[in-house]
Amino acid sequence: MSPDAFSLLCWRRLGPADRDRIFALHLRAIQGMGPDQVRPESLEFFEALLDGAGRIIGACDPDGALVAYGVLQDGPDPGTRPDLWLGWPFDARIQKLAGSSVAAEYRGQRLQRELIRRRVALADPDAYLYATAAPSNPASWRSLLGEGFEIRRLRRVYQDTLRYLLARRAGPRAEPAAPAAGDGALRLEGLSLDEQDRLLSCGWRGRPAPSGCVLVPPEAFE
């Protein structure tokens, strides 16, 4: 791939005619990955989104091949209730960044970050946004942290698989400031999953930091 291949990509909202190409890219992207890392989706999942349950944005190469897509889903998944877990207003407009895929030859070009940015821009301006990411898939949750999301909970969802719940508001938003020394922040990777779960349940939040990711206590941002 040439160095300027990224700049030659054509971005557009995908439609029903793209269904099979989206599904094929999804299947290629998850090869070799188990449900503990990524959630496999059905053809019907993408069909419903393209039929009005959400929006899918995609990038095509100069030859018209689909090389990346990202899903913005209207409403929460059954079994994931960020409105209840995070105390969001009962009438909150909730949208989910519900998965994305990048063709192997385009990985390492920060396309996952671009897909997050474009879906946040595509979301309703007053929406509460969330996403899930497996602790064993750091590329996913680190990309979300880099785009203004915070790790808010650790939950077993999707047929009892462990996922971080990450959230932010739609619209322009500055990234959280890096925690200052002495604010009690703890390095995420140095904590067991049980300890992470305990702290997140007490209101701690996962944020980006020069060292990777830290959990910040509630008093640091209240």
Rank of each mutant, 00 (worst) to 15 (best):
E219V: 13
L50F: 08
L166W: 04
P16L: 10
D126T: 14
D124C: 10
L14W: 07
P208Q: 07
Q31R: 15
E44R: 14
L191M: 10
A177F: 14
L144I: 06
A181R: 10
L50M: 12
L122T: 05
V214N: 07
A104I: 12
L86V: 01
L97S: 08
R93L: 09
G52R: 08
R19N: 14
L72W: 00
G32P: 04
A177Q: 09
D77R: 13
R117P: 06
G15W: 03
R93V: 08
Q109G: 13
G99E: 00
Y130N: 01
F221P: 12
R117C: 09
A139W: 10
P217D: 07
F45Y: 15
R153I: 05
M1E: 13
I30Y: 10
L165K: 09
L144Y: 00
P82K: 03
G148R: 08
W11E: 06
F221A: 13
L86C: 03
L9A: 02
E147M: 09
L14S: 05
D77V: 08
W85V: 02
E195K: 05
P210I: 09
A134C: 01
E114H: 05
A65L: 13
S136C: 11
G64W: 02
R21C: 06
G190H: 04
R187T: 15
V38Y: 11
A24D: 12
P172M: 14
E175T: 14
V102T: 14
G64F: 00
R119Q: 02
L154P: 06
K96Y: 07
Y69M: 05
L129K: 02
P210K: 05
P62S: 01
A29L: 04
V71C: 04
E41Q: 15
D126F: 07
L165W: 03
Y158S: 12
G58N: 03
L188W: 15
A48H: 13
P125Q: 07
D51A: 15
G182K: 03
L145T: 02
L25P: 03
Q37M: 08
S140G: 03
A5M: 14
L154Q: 04
A177P: 04
A5N: 12
L14F: 03
E44C: 13
F149H: 06
F45I: 03
L186H: 09
E175H: 15
W11D: 02
L27F: 11
C60T: 11
A59G: 04
R152C: 12
D194N: 14
M33T: 10
R39G: 08
A24C: 06
R118K: 04
V38P: 02
V216I: 09
P3M: 10
R207K: 14
A104C: 14
I151K: 00
V38A: 07
A17F: 02
R187Y: 15
A103Y: 13
C10R: 15
P35V: 05
G34Q: 00
M1Q: 06
L200N: 01
G146T: 07
G212W: 05
G75M: 04
P210L: 01
Q196H: 05
A177R: 11
G75W: 01
R152Q: 12
D51M: 11
R110K: 08
R163K: 03
L50W: 12
G87K: 01
V216L: 09
A29N: 03
L122Y: 07
C213S: 15
R107W: 13
A92S: 02
L154C: 03
L186D: 12
A178R: 11
P82Q: 00
I56M: 02
S211C: 15
A220G: 02
L188P: 10
S2W: 12
G148E: 11
D74M: 06
L145Q: 02
I22F: 01
